[in-house]
Write a protein that binds this DNA or RNA. Structure first.
Length: 650
DNA sequence: GCAAGGTC
């Protein structure tokens, strides 16, 4: 086996020279080359984006790669030679890429113009699939290169969309070469071991997963377009942007993700609007001992009845002597963070670094394609047992900021990750894959967050000692808590969380003292705050609205449409138009702004992937559901539009 | 002029 391998490699080198000769001398060596090339299998490899193609080629080609232009500015072609186990052959690998989806769905020409048809027809009108102008150069490149290849290996991202993009590549290539052998590589980080493992474990691509995405695309297009045309043309809201749009109406869009996103913002706003503050009363006790002031907490916390509170106050004022009835001491831990999934990442970036989710994902994407971190779109928050965490921790020892901390983890017996219980069965939690020292700006901050979170997760919980003192004053109970931090552990590297000592005096059981002050205070309940971006993302995640990659886009979209705005305190506030749309649909009895419809679709898509439902069935069911809503809104359109107009003007 | 999902 080894002998064969070496021999094949030698042939590979010879052919390589001949191939270059062929380039230089045209047909001169043609016959000779033809004979030798027959030993070599030509393989076209296609990744989802150029950066992946480049880095995968660099790893597999061990630096011996040739770069060629493809006609598409962003997509290069990299050539190298490597032995591919599942083909049992030394291969001439041509590695190139698409730029995300290559194909696009749209209505046929007869339904594309807004005035061409009743929007309801869009639920059943023909849909065409085509390569948009922006992808034509990539398509030409794929079809040109596949002609002299017998194998196609798909290197798109290992998620649902990636599988679908894989089939787009397959369709385009099969158009010119129907009898291709097709293989799929599985990887979730671009490192030597992961990429070599992928090459050694090629499988068939998964059509079911790709089918699920087709269903999602068709549904989103039909429903989005039908309702958007209906609302925009029906409401005729004048456009206040002075752009060059020849249409004078503002677009009032509906989308299966943007509408529920809006719904969350409006719902919170409503809770706040409808909130009625409730007055409440509570008793405070102040004392001083050993020079330390203590504010004791009432066990009843608060009473909503003033007279009851007065009664208790007068009762304890009769014998205002406190007796220490209980002292509890216990170990207290502050837990280190779980391994990082995408939503946690987006929320931390937004709340701790003040980098909005959209920008944070862009930075993470760049760090991933540069090989610094693992794939940033993951729902997994537990590390697989086979991952070599100690190697990853060791790699961070070069840092002047957290290197010592990484070193300490290793010295103390190695990484002990705090794992959650979610796994998408495709990607590990977000973690650094190598040390980076040359980053700047937001990318640097994002990388630092990922590294510090990773090291914190691999370290130990912080340990403290909590003392709870309980007193009774004429049968009323009050408590005081003190905290002594013993071991900071993960907190030393995780600068985003704080934990403070709280010093309290020494007490002994049955000790008696007279408090310096006993008082009754009045306060009232406060309304919930408007949502922050971080909280909205958490809600979207919880209800399955959008993907890790698009949460941020949907929030941007509803801002752009004039449905919501951001307050100076960075809270999300719905505008009249947004409130009107949500209330109008609520009013005619449809939960369009609620997340349930999208969640139901998501569930069906998973079933398509698992093979328990057919794509045709799922598509038909959901189309029917939304068409019913459409017909009803059309029937009640005067009422619906009037409701929205009232809100816009209020 | 529409969606959501990829990416530059």
């Amino acid at each position: 086996m080894l002998g064969k391998f070496i021999q094949t490699r030698n042939i590979g080198v010879r052919i390589f020279l001949n191939w270059q000769e062929k380039q230089s001398f045209g047909n001169f060596t043609c016959l000779h080359v033809k004979r030798k090339l027959s030993d070599m299998v030509n393989v076209l490899n296609v990744a989802e984006k150029n950066s992946v193609a480049k880095n995968v080629a660099q790893i597999l080609g061990r630096g011996a790669i040739q770069t060629r232009e493809t006609g598409s500015v962003y997509n290069k072609l990299y050539e190298f030679r490597v032995y591919v186990p599942s083909l049992q052959n030394q291969c001439l690998m041509k590695m190139t890429s698409v730029s995300g989806h290559l194909l696009s769905f749209d209505f046929g020409p007869e339904h594309r113009k807004w005035t061409s048809c009743n929007p309801q027809e869009l639920f059943s009108s023909p849909i065409v699939r085509f390569v948009p102008e922006t992808g034509m150069k990539i398509k030409k490149c794929l079809q040109r290169e596949i002609r002299n290849c017998s194998v196609l290996i798909i290197w798109t991202d290992c998620d649902r969309e990636g599988e679908n993009i894989g089939f787009e590549i397959i369709d385009v290539c099969r158009e010119v070469k129907p009898n291709l052998k097709i293989l799929r590589a599985h990887f979730s980080e671009i490192t030597g071991p992961a990429i070599n493992r992928a090459l050694n474990t090629l499988t068939e691509p998964n059509k079911k997963v790709s089918d699920a995405v087709d269903v999602r695309q068709k549904l989103d297009l039909r429903i989005g377009a039908a309702f958007t045309r209906f609302l925009t043309m029906g409401l005729q809201v004048p456009n206040n942007n002075n752009n060059n749009s020849d249409k004078n109406n503002q677009i009032i869009s509906y989308g299966s993700c943007q509408f529920p996103t809006l719904g969350f913002v409006v719902e919170r706003w409503k809770q706040r609007e409808e909130f009625v503050p409730q007055p409440f009363w509570y008793i405070t006790v102040e004392s001083v001992k050993d020079g330390i002031s203590c504010s004791w907490n009432w066990k009843r916390q608060r009473l909503f009845d003033e007279r009851s509170c007065i009664a208790i106050l007068s009762k304890i004022s009769e014998h205002p002597t406190a007796k220490v009835t209980k002292i509890n001491s216990k170990q207290k831990s502050k837990y280190r963070p779980y391994a990082m999934d995408t939503v946690t990442f987006e929320r931390l970036a937004s709340s701790k670094l003040r980098i909005n989710a959209k920008r944070a994902m862009m930075c993470a994407e760049k760090l991933y394609t540069s090989g610094y971190i693992s794939y940033p779109r993951t729902e997994t928050n537990k590390f697989p047992p086979e991952i070599k965490l100690n190697d990853l921790v060791t790699a961070q020892q070069s840092s002047s900021e957290w290197g010592q901390f990484a070193n300490r983890i290793i010295q103390n017996g190695g990484a002990t990750p705090r794992n959650g219980n979610k796994s998408d069965q495709a990607h590990p939690p977000i973690h650094p894959t190598k040390y980076a020292s040359n980053l700047n700006g937001d990318e640097k901050k994002i990388y630092e967050l990922i590294v510090r979170h990773f090291l914190a997760c691999c370290d130990k919980d912080a340990q403290g000692f909590e003392v709870t003192v309980q007193i009774e004053i004429n049968e009323e109970i009050f408590t005081l808590k003190g905290l002594q931090i013993k071991e900071r552990n993960y907190l030393e590297v995780y600068i985003y969380e704080k934990w403070y000592d709280k010093e309290i005096p020494q007490f002994v059981e049955n000790e008696m003292f007279v408090p310096n002050d006993i008082d009754m205070k009045k306060s009232e309940t406060t309304a919930p705050e408007l949502l922050t971006e971080a909280q909205l993302i958490a809600l979207m995640e919880k209800h399955g609205i959008g993907t890790d990659a698009t949460h941020a886009d949907h929030i941007e979209k509803i801002k752009e449409r004039g449905y919501i705005m951001v307050t100076p305190t960075r809270h999300l506030m719905p505008k009249g138009l947004g409130i009107g749309l949500v209330e109008a649909y609520d009013d005619i009895g449809f939960e369009m702004s609620k997340p349930y419809l999208r969640a139901a679709l998501e569930k069906d898509l998973v079933q398509i992937c698992e093979g328990t439902k057919t794509p045709e069935h799922v598509l038909k069911t959901h189309i029917n559901e939304y068409e019913k809503v459409y017909k009803e809104s059309h029937k009640q359109k005067n009422r619906l539009f009037e409701l929205v107009r009232t809100k816009i003007n209020s």
